[in-house]
Simulated scan of single mutants.
Amino acid sequence: MEKHITHTNSIKLKSLSRFMQILDGTFPSGVFVHSFGLEPHIVKEKVKDIDSLKIYLKNLIIDQYSKMEFVYVQKTYKYLYENKLALLKKLDNEISSYLTYEYAKASRDIGHNYYVQIKDTLLKDEVKEYFSFIENKKSDVNELVVLASYAYDLDISIENFIVMWTKKNLINIAATTLKISRIKPSQVQKMLFEFDEILENIDFNFDSKITNFNPLFEEIIFEHKTLEPKMFVT
Rank of each mutant, 00 (worst) to 15 (best):
L88G: 01
P229H: 10
I183R: 00
N172P: 05
A151K: 00
E223C: 09
K44M: 13
M20E: 14
W165S: 05
T6C: 07
F206Y: 14
H34Q: 09
N9F: 08
L192G: 04
E223K: 10
G37R: 03
L178Q: 12
P215Q: 01
F217W: 04
K119M: 03
K48M: 08
I50G: 00
V71F: 01
E143P: 07
S66R: 04
F70C: 02
Y103I: 04
Y152H: 07
L192E: 05
F133W: 03
E129N: 09
D203E: 07
E135A: 14
V141H: 13
V47K: 01
N59L: 11
K225H: 09
Y81C: 09
E219Y: 11
V33H: 05
S15G: 13
Y72H: 10
I55H: 07
L170K: 01
I42D: 00
K46R: 08
S96Q: 14
I22H: 09
V73P: 03
E228W: 11
K84I: 06
D51A: 14
N205S: 12
H7I: 15
Y77C: 06
P185C: 06
A175W: 06
V141A: 15
I62Q: 11
L53G: 02
T211H: 05
S15I: 04
D155V: 02
T226M: 10
I62L: 12
I62Y: 08
L123A: 10
N169G: 10
V145S: 05
R108D: 05
Y114S: 05
M68L: 13
S208V: 11
I110H: 03
W165D: 04
Y77H: 03
D92P: 02
K90R: 12
I202K: 00
G111Q: 02
I118T: 03
E82M: 04
E102A: 05
L147V: 09
S10A: 14
A148E: 00
M231A: 07
E143A: 11
K167Y: 14
W165M: 06
I158W: 03
Q189G: 14
Q189T: 13
L216R: 07
R182F: 12
L88Q: 03
E82F: 04
D153P: 06
R108E: 13
S96A: 14
F222Y: 10
L38D: 01
V47S: 01
I156S: 02
M231F: 08
D49L: 07
L87P: 00
T76W: 02
S208D: 12
V47L: 04
R182K: 14
D203H: 02
N212F: 10
